[in-house]
Every structure is written in structure tokens, then in C-alpha cells.
């Protein structure tokens, strides 16, 4: 009576139904929570950040102000997560092996080599204007990593290894990470708290100009460097992994 096909189908149906039920429950809870908050907290108190961030940190982009100043400790933790996942990927995959030399076609390589310098403008802009416009260290760093991957894909891993050696990637990642942790100590030495910004004597500057926001641009730069180096070295590990000893029979 019960064929395996029907059984699998029924199992999947039940699983799908349960997942849907669970997620609908989540929606109900979140909506109720929002209603509860609207009843208990007056609307003026809802935004502790927007009103004060320019005066206190000098950063126009409030999200950057939160990420790099108010909750900079989160950012440190997050950069550490990236660092750890690079280390884990390296531990799992081993040293990058012999790089392959597959490249894209000649025409696309020509075009890319003309355009590539232009491509670097965007991430650098995003990083340096993190406190002025949308974006910041993370977004810029990831797009830098994507550019490094693009170089690897377009011109072959061997060329990529020559232009940006893996050792340099690793060293710049460690350097940026140590710089990130070290900047926090400036706050302690100035008699303030760890990762303090204006309270530690960094100049706030005129809001809206490039040199404003105290330590925020520097943190953006370090985070960008760290994220770019880390993520692209994950790619290098993944792409350089040798798959040669796959057993032929055991599938």
C-alpha cells in the first residue's frame, strides 16, 4: 500500500507544514511585540541614536556611528569571527596547492585590465566615506575582496598569486586585526574606556567633512582591510584546494 515515494512525499509535506506553522508563529509574536512596545514606550523615545549621533561622534551616517563607535565592541567581535573563519577554512582545506592557470578569454581580459583600476574606486570611496554616506568598512572590504577574486578568476590563480601573494594577504589581515585591537587601547591609555572615541581625545572634526568622526574613519579603514584580506584568503584557500585524491569508485 505505502510506496516509498508516497512516504517521502508525506514526510516532506509534514516537515513543510511544521516549518510554515513555526514561521507564522514567529510573525504573530513579532507583531505582538511591536504592539506591546507601541503601548509601553512613547514614540519620542524610540530613537536614542539619530538625534545625538552627529553631536557625539561627528558621523553623519548613524549606522556607521553605531557600528564603529557606540557598539564598536560588536564590530571587534565580528571581525574576530571573520578571522576565526579564515583560520578554520585554512585548517580544514590545508595549504593552497598548485594554482591553476585557467583564465578567461583574451577579449574579456583586455577589457578587464583597462577597467580594473576604475573598479577600485568604488570600494575605496565606500570605505573612506563610511561616516558620510551609506557604506563603511564592511561593505567596502567585501567589495575589495570580490575584486581580488575577480583578478583570480579573470587572469588565473597563478597570476593572482604573483600580484597578491597569499603571505601578504595573511600578513595584512593579521596586521589590520592587531591594529583594530590596538586602537582600542588608546582609550585606556587616555584614561577613558576601551574603544572610546571622542571621550579618548580623538578630534571630532566638522561633521560632513572627510576628516571628521574622530577614530571612525581609521576604524573603517582597518575593518575594510581586515575583511578584504580575510575573505579573499578564504577564496584562495577554497580555490587552491587540490581535489586530486578523490577515490574513483566510492561515490
Amino acid at each position: 500500500m505505502e510506496s516509498p515515494v508516497i512516504r517521502v512525499f508525506l514526510t516532506r509535506l509534514t516537515a513543510g507544514f511544521l516549518c510554515l506553522l513555526l514561521s507564522l508563529g514567529f510573525v504573530v509574536l513579532l507583531l505582538d511585540a511591536g504592539r506591546h512596545r507601541a503601548q509601553t514606550i512613547p514614540t519620542q523615545m524610540e530613537e536614542p541614536y539619530t538625534a545625538r549621533s552627529v553631536a557625539e561622534t561627528g558621523s553623519i551616517n548613524v549606522v556607521t556611528a553605531i557600528l564603529m563607535d557606540y557598539r564598536a565592541f560588536d564590530t571587534l567581535g565580528e571581525a574576530t569571527v571573520i578571522f576565526a573563519s579564515v583560520a578554520v577554512a585554512a585548517a580544514i582545506l590545508g595549504k593552497p596547492g598548485s594554482p591553476s592557470n585557467r583564465t578567461m578569454g583574451l577579449l574579456s581580459r583586455r577589457q578587464l585590465s583597462a577597467l580594473l583600476p576604475l573598479f577600485f574606486i568604488f570600494p575605496l570611496f565606500v570605505i573612506f566615506h563610511g561616516h558620510l554616506s551609506p557604506g563603511g568598512g564592511f561593505q567596502g572590504g567585501v567589495s575589495l575582496a570580490v575584486l581580488v577574486i575577480l583578478i583570480h578568476v579573470a587572469f588565473g590563480d597563478r597570476f593572482g598569486e604573483e600580484v597578491i601573494p597569499h603571505r601578504i594577504l595573511a600578513l595584512s589581515e593579521y596586521g589590520a586585526a592587531i591594529g583594530l585591537v590596538g586602537i582600542g587601547f588608546v582609550g585606556i591609555f587616555q584614561g577613558s574606556a576601551y574603544l572610546a572615541n571622542v571621550a579618548a581625545g580623538f578630534p571630532r572634526g566638522t561633521a560632513g567633512t572627510l576628516a571628521s568622526g574622530g577614530v571612525i574613519p581609521l576604524l573603517n579603514l582597518l575593518v575594510g582591510m581586515k575583511v578584504a584580506a580575510g575573505l579573499s584568503s578564504i577564496y584562495v584557500h577554497l580555490a587552491g584546494h587540490e581535489a586530486e585524491n578523490v577515490p574513483e569508485k566510492r561515490r
Partner: peptide
């Protein structure tokens, strides 16, 4: 509200890190 945006950014990056490990595995 800007705070959830900051939290979301953090969550995205952490998710990317974990996913990279999953792919490596």
C-alpha cells in the same frame, strides 16, 4: 530605527563567515 540595521549588518557578516566554513567542509 538604526540599531537593527547595525545588528543586521553584523548578522550578515557572521552568516557569511559561517557559510564559508560550511563550503570549506
Amino acid at each position: 530605527d538604526p540599531l537593527p540595521h547595525a545588528l543586521a549588518l553584523t548578522a550578515i557578516v557572521i552568516g557569511a563567515g559561517i557559510l564559508a566554513i560550511a563550503l570549506a567542509l
